[in-house]
Design a protein around this nucleic acid. Sequence first.
DNA 1: CTTGACACTCGCCAATGGCGATTGCTAGTT
DNA 2: AACTAGCAATCGCCATTGGCGAGTGTCAAG
Lengths: 355, 355
Amino acid sequence: MTDTTAAVDEAPSDRAQLLLRTLIECYVRDGQPVGSRTLSRESGLSLSSATIRNVMADLEEHGFVSSPHTSAGRVPTDKGYRYFVNALLRYQPPGQAEIAELQRHLEQRAGDPRALVTAASQLVSSLTHLAGVVTVPREAHAALSQIEFVGLSGNRVLAILVVNGREVQNRVVQLDRHYPADELRRAAAYLNEQFRGRELADVRASLVAQLQETREQMNRLMVDAITLAQRAFESQPDEQAADMVVAGETNLMGFAELSNVDRLRRLFEAFGEKRDILHLLDQSLHGEGVQIFIGHESGFTILDDCSVVAAPYTQDDRVVGVVGVIGPTRMAYERVIPVVDIAARMLGSALKSRD
Amino acid sequence: MTDTTAAVDEAPSDRAQLLLRTLIECYVRDGQPVGSRTLSRESGLSLSSATIRNVMADLEEHGFVSSPHTSAGRVPTDKGYRYFVNALLRYQPPGQAEIAELQRHLEQRAGDPRALVTAASQLVSSLTHLAGVVTVPREAHAALSQIEFVGLSGNRVLAILVVNGREVQNRVVQLDRHYPADELRRAAAYLNEQFRGRELADVRASLVAQLQETREQMNRLMVDAITLAQRAFESQPDEQAADMVVAGETNLMGFAELSNVDRLRRLFEAFGEKRDILHLLDQSLHGEGVQIFIGHESGFTILDDCSVVAAPYTQDDRVVGVVGVIGPTRMAYERVIPVVDIAARMLGSALKSRD
DNA sequence: CTTGACACTCGCCAATGGCGATTGCTAGTT
DNA sequence: AACTAGCAATCGCCATTGGCGAGTGTCAAG
């Protein structure tokens, strides 16, 4: 323990760091365990393979690499990747052409959040050759621009909410009596005057309060109008439930480490059920900047050989969702991370409500 | 050629038919080539394996079965399946419980075509353990119940079309001048009075005609109203583009014959691109009842070891879409076909506009 | 027409052994 | 003290081998 090399545990020497980086770069490139000979060739250091073997033994002892079996080079562990990502990574941002393409595709869908999210998912997927995952924006910041009612058959009323000046939401409400057209119009006019520009959640709260208040005054018409509105607001649209858009899942087939059909199946089922993945992405929602879950760090065994790179994106300076990619642990982090980062920023600015 | 058995080419004897049926049933059940011994046990006939071998040789000569290699039983060919489906099939309809479940899930989504289609896709998928595919209904039969306009910011107007008394469509139209609220209201009132109950396509045609007519009278207000309406109708909503909903694709992983990751990948990419599959399903649209494409019959090499079972479904006696499943050629046709048939009927009746 | 018998074919599987890549260790070199 | 060359040992990979079993085609006898 009193070694002159001061192996302070956890902190590899400069040389070991360089070798770890080279090893990971080779392994990500070739997908095969990296031996000491290869490393001595590719590291740039002029060291013999024997020396490198010693270093590798240290790295293995500290848990940064491991050998699948006796006579097969070394492979990075999750801990190795983690150290690499935290300390050794040399980012390699996408070229101008790719950024321009990203920009172009997003710009031309400005105004339609759903289309934007789909495009963002496809774009990060195609730029990284991994699976793209983007959660749909939360409507946390939803200012009511306008509300209208349209009577349907059978005591049903269609409520149309225009939110943030551009997004339209429909909700069909089943009522217990028929509301004639002019009553609907008056109710809408009242609500528009009263609540225009306020947050949806805010509006809902006010409605409850007003209903209480007005009911005591026994003003029948008002009570009905407010009841109607309240019904419209309480029926949370289904799409409101947290959701996400996945793109390019098929990119994940063909990675040797996921070629186990059974594992692949469970992974795809996780994409389909969305629940676990959404839960994971939620964690990035509260963080800042790009976040990375390597292998077991995600906490879901389905993602054991996968990493998730995710970044929150904003709408008008408020975090409303996450854009990310899912791929094998062995991914080109130096290229993936900048792509996700940029995509999240661009999605944010494309979502900005500007009127 | 002057054989006493009168092998009139193409028409196997009764005994051969029975054996072909047994062979296919065994093969579908076990997934392994079926030998003469197994067949003599399972066919019910009291024939020795030697006799059966002779029959199999005939069947092979006529192309109904083939042997993967010398000493491995026989496997049905596409032609064998085709004959089986056309002539030998003993349908095995789903039980009451399953039908009730189907009914229940569809009923409770009545009125929301998109949800119905999704549910139908999931249901056929889970009942057959294959991939479910359902095209979204064409809006061929779309009677206008009501139209309303809501002014948005920046000269944009939201047109709300209520169709078939229950379905709601939104279209945002960008106009070249601002339309005040009362003008929008008057335009809507006019259109409702004029066109309520007519087909959308019909309405569109009338609008063009009227525009011509009215323009000559130089009635500015009318022209603007009709122009507005026309804009609303011409902007075909994107969702109108033929689309489909796939469910349970992951069921296809795990079938030995598709376990080739590369083939699986291309199959999944075909699901994602939708184009080819939609094209195939379109063919069922014009047919009647359940239609079956076995192996190469689909014409798409991606589906070479797959069969597609599809049936058109109607809305108010008009064919508007197709419900189907995609699975390996080796599927339990006797169970799958009735399920698809029933699902298509039920989807049709759940879609019926009833007001 | 059917059947039992027989020779033959061929995939599957497990055992085998050589090859090559890589490692840990040790003794020697700088 | 750090590095290196050399060496024995390990182990996966791969092709070969041979035995086993399932199945086939054929043929003569019933």
